[in-house]
Design a protein around this nucleic acid. Structure first.
Lengths: 153, 153
DNA sequence: ATATGTGCAAATCCTTTGCACGTGC
DNA sequence: GCACGTGCAAAGGATTTGCACATAT
């Protein structure tokens, strides 16, 4: 899905839910879809403010759930205290591989996940809503040399 | 592994790491292994205090990582703010199914997970450390009738 | 016009930490 | 004895919320 299509989807989602299309929400959308890596709420705030400096932290936190519910963003919680977000590719059959050294998040296709969620849930009398597979891994380069080539922090 | 064996393992783990076997740590261990469901740090504090009322919140939080590192407990983060813990069955090839209504956590065997982590990680030049699969699901009973039979909260 | 949305700052929630005292080894 | 462990209360960090003002529809 192109950024333009996603932006249109965002606006129609807002309208359809009786929510308003505000300049702040659009700035937050634009900032999110300009990112190339996973980002945090705080990073999104910085980028959104570069577009519209009236955007507040509160509005970012109030807008993120809207974008997540509308499937425009995927929320990734790697258990590091803060959550990460990423423009959704559409498919929910995606797993994350997280480097334990540099915390870089790789998104990978995991086509069997949906089947597995269905199988397992139905055994328990449950209906699957969503599933996530997360692999913690270590750069081989890190293991061999003690330094992670992706390290940025 | 029996509780007795686990308790022995805990004590030898402490000794081997140069850590001390204190009455508080043993009370926390006993409280943890008496649980039948997943529990939070706060719940563990309550139960540990019932055994030894000198146990403090700080010590619970300082002991949980030790029990997790020694593989006696498994930590489960379902993205609800607080973490859950559960006496480990040994295998790491376990997935969690979480009911979105009552937050009850079911542990299920997921024997393919290790293979999958290996396959995917190696493609990225990473060495898998751990993996977790979490399925969010809804009680069918809840979906049909609007009430979750497991609801306790 | 008016129901929503917003910024600000304070509040919350879980978890961590500094410090002085207590205690296994 | 002394290094490690502990309780207490304060600090910390991410996220949420109350309120008065602003604004989309």
């Amino acid at each position: 899905m192109s950024v333009e299509a996603a932006r249109a989807k965002f606006q129609s989602y807002l309208t359809q839910k009786g929510l308003r299309v505000t300049s702040q929400r659009l700035a937050i959308f634009d900032a999110a879809f300009a990112q190339k890596e996973h980002f945090t709420a705080e990073e999104l705030l910085d980028h959104a403010r570069a577009i519209d400096d009236s955007v507040s932290r509160a509005t970012v936190y109030r807008t993120l759930p809207i974008m997540t519910e509308s499937a425009l963003l995927r929320e990734v919680d790697i258990g590091k205290g803060e959550k990460f977000y990423f423009p959704s590719s559409g498919s929910t059959q995606v797993a994350q591989v997280v480097c334990v050294d540099c915390d870089k998040i790789f998104e990978i296709s995991a086509p069997f996940m949906e089947w597995y969620g269905n199988t397992v849930s139905s055994k328990l009398g449950l209906r699957p809503v969503s599933q996530r597979l997360q692999v913690s891994a270590q750069c081989i380069a890190f293991h061999d040399r003690g330094a992670c080539p992706n390290r940025t922090k």
